[in-house]
Computed example of a mutant assay.
Amino acid sequence: MARKSAARLTLEVQAETLGLQYPANISNKKLAALIAEAAEANQAAQEAGPGLTELTTPAPAPGAGDEPDGLKVTGPKQGRWRAGLYFTREARVLRLADLTDQEVTALDGDLKLDVVRCHVDQDD
């Protein structure tokens, strides 16, 4: 296995600091461009100030509490079993009250599932 150059190690540290995910075989040139783009986006967000959060954060649903009471889970194309439940590309909404802490942890920790906290309608 080839040793990484000092330039490559520096790029990887910068990418990690920015929280970037990238393929291991990405070229230094492309990684540098990705880092520059992320740094520029972070700079723009800082210059915009706290008001940007107000614009990008959706308002809670009418009558919804502050805390989400459900999970919206989407699985991979081929489907996936987790916590005794089967997930496909079609999003599935689950009430947190119907899940154990271990099930929620298993769902949240599965990298092949897209898990988003949400508010569950009373009709669901």
Rank of each mutant, 00 (worst) to 15 (best):
A6C: 07
A61T: 03
P60A: 04
G63C: 15
G75K: 10
Q78L: 14
E37S: 13
K77H: 05
T17Y: 10
R95A: 09
D66C: 06
D114V: 08
R92A: 08
A38K: 14
P76V: 14
L11T: 04
L94H: 06
A106S: 11
Q102E: 14
A6N: 09
T17H: 11
Q78N: 02
A59D: 10
A97H: 08
L107I: 06
D98S: 01
G49F: 08
D114P: 03
T88C: 05
V13M: 13
A64Y: 02
E67D: 02
P23H: 14
R80L: 14
K29S: 14
Q46T: 04
G79E: 06
G75L: 02
T56A: 13
Q43D: 01
A33D: 15
R8H: 12
K4N: 11
E12P: 01
L113P: 11
D101C: 01
Q14W: 03
A33F: 00
A97I: 12
W81S: 14
I35V: 12
N25R: 14
L18V: 11
T10H: 00
T100M: 01
L71N: 10
E103K: 06
L96E: 12
P76C: 12
L11M: 09
R80D: 07
T57M: 11
L52E: 13
T53G: 14
T56W: 04
E90V: 13
G79P: 04
I26G: 05
R82V: 09
G70M: 13
A64S: 15
P58V: 10
P68S: 04
L111H: 13
Q21A: 00
T17W: 06
P50W: 06
A59C: 12
Q122F: 07
G79C: 04
P62S: 15
V93L: 12
V104G: 08
I26M: 14
A48H: 07
A2H: 13
Q43A: 01
P68F: 00
F87V: 02
L99G: 04
V73K: 05
A91Q: 03
P58E: 00
L113N: 05
K72T: 02
L20W: 03
E37Q: 09
T88D: 06
G19E: 02
T88P: 06
D110R: 03
D114I: 05
R89G: 03
N25P: 07
D110K: 03
L34I: 01
L107C: 00
P58S: 07
N25S: 13
V104P: 05
G63I: 11
P23T: 02
L9S: 07
A7Q: 08
E47R: 06
A38E: 15
D101Y: 03
D66F: 08
G49E: 15
P62C: 14
Q78V: 01
Q102F: 05
E12Q: 14
R82A: 09
D66K: 14
D123R: 13
